[in-house]
Simulated scan of single mutants.
Amino acid sequence: MRTVEAEREARWSATLHAHQRRVTRQRLAVLAAVEQLPHATADDAATAVRAELPHITVQSVYVILADLTGIGLLRRIETPHSPARYETRVNDNHHHAVCTGCGRIEDVDCAVGHAPCLTPEWSPGASRMTIQVAEVLYQGLCDDCRPAAPHHPPTHHE
């Protein structure tokens, strides 16, 4: 019986081959690091990869992250006041909630369940587009940070 890790590595390998990429220890190590550290920064991923491959450079990790994002194995997340982050949860139209106190990021499933989950109201004279994806970023205080905040706004747990 194959382990979950072996199945995941086989899926990653198939996707790499489908995009004319070689399956290398470096690419698999970056994918494994981001899988283990959801919402990892490039530096987080590099530190984790270096535990397995001590001679890999941070620049190599950045190049691999960009390439894996480009072929859809990783998703790059841009949040305010933070370096880019990466995750292996792709192609499922989920969003993110960021705590403005501690910076913690949580996944939030799409309320609508399909992409795009929002339809824009076009400004007069705007050149309209066919929207394929809408990125939603929720910002607020997590349960750990809220008690320390000077004002406790009502919570909306859904």
Rank of each mutant, 00 (worst) to 15 (best):
M1R: 13
R2V: 03
R2F: 08
T3I: 10
E9R: 14
W12I: 04
A14W: 05
A14F: 04
T15N: 13
T15Q: 15
L16I: 00
L16G: 00
H17V: 09
A18D: 10
Q20L: 12
Q20R: 14
R21N: 03
R21Y: 03
R22K: 11
R22N: 05
V23P: 01
V23L: 06
R25I: 01
R25G: 10
Q26T: 14
Q26P: 02
R27N: 03
L28E: 00
A29F: 07
A29G: 03
V30D: 00
A33G: 05
A33C: 03
E35C: 05
P38G: 00
H39S: 03
A40M: 00
A42K: 02
A42D: 00
D43V: 14
D44R: 01
A46R: 00
A46I: 00
T47I: 01
T47M: 05
A48G: 02
V49H: 07
V49K: 04
V49L: 07
A51R: 14
A51C: 06
A51H: 13
E52I: 08
L53P: 00
L53H: 03
P54H: 09
P54Q: 06
V58M: 00
V61F: 04
V63L: 03
T69N: 08
G70N: 14
I71F: 15
G72C: 14
G72E: 14
G72M: 09
L73H: 10
L74G: 04
L74F: 07
R75L: 13
R75K: 15
R76V: 10
I77K: 04
E78V: 13
E78L: 13
T79H: 13
T79Y: 11
P80S: 06
P80H: 07
P80F: 05
H81G: 01
H81R: 14
S82Q: 15
P83A: 11
R85K: 13
R85S: 06
Y86R: 10
E87Q: 12
E87T: 15
T88Q: 08
R89W: 12
V90F: 11
V90E: 13
N91L: 13
N91A: 15
D92Y: 13
V98L: 15
V98E: 12
C99N: 10
C99T: 08
T100D: 08
G101R: 10
C102Y: 05
C102E: 02
G103D: 09
R104E: 06
D109Q: 09
C110K: 06
A111Y: 07
V112N: 02
H114L: 12
A115R: 10
P116K: 00
L118Q: 03
T119H: 08
E121F: 10
W122Y: 10
W122P: 02
S123Y: 11
S123R: 14
P124V: 11
G125W: 12
G125F: 07
M129F: 14
T130L: 11
Q132Y: 14
Q132F: 07
Q132L: 15
L137S: 08
Q139F: 02
L141F: 12
L141A: 09
C142I: 04
D143G: 01
D143K: 05
D143I: 07
D144P: 02
C145G: 04
C145D: 11
R146A: 13
P150V: 09
P150K: 10
P150I: 10
P153Q: 02
P153N: 03
P154M: 13
H156P: 02
H157S: 08
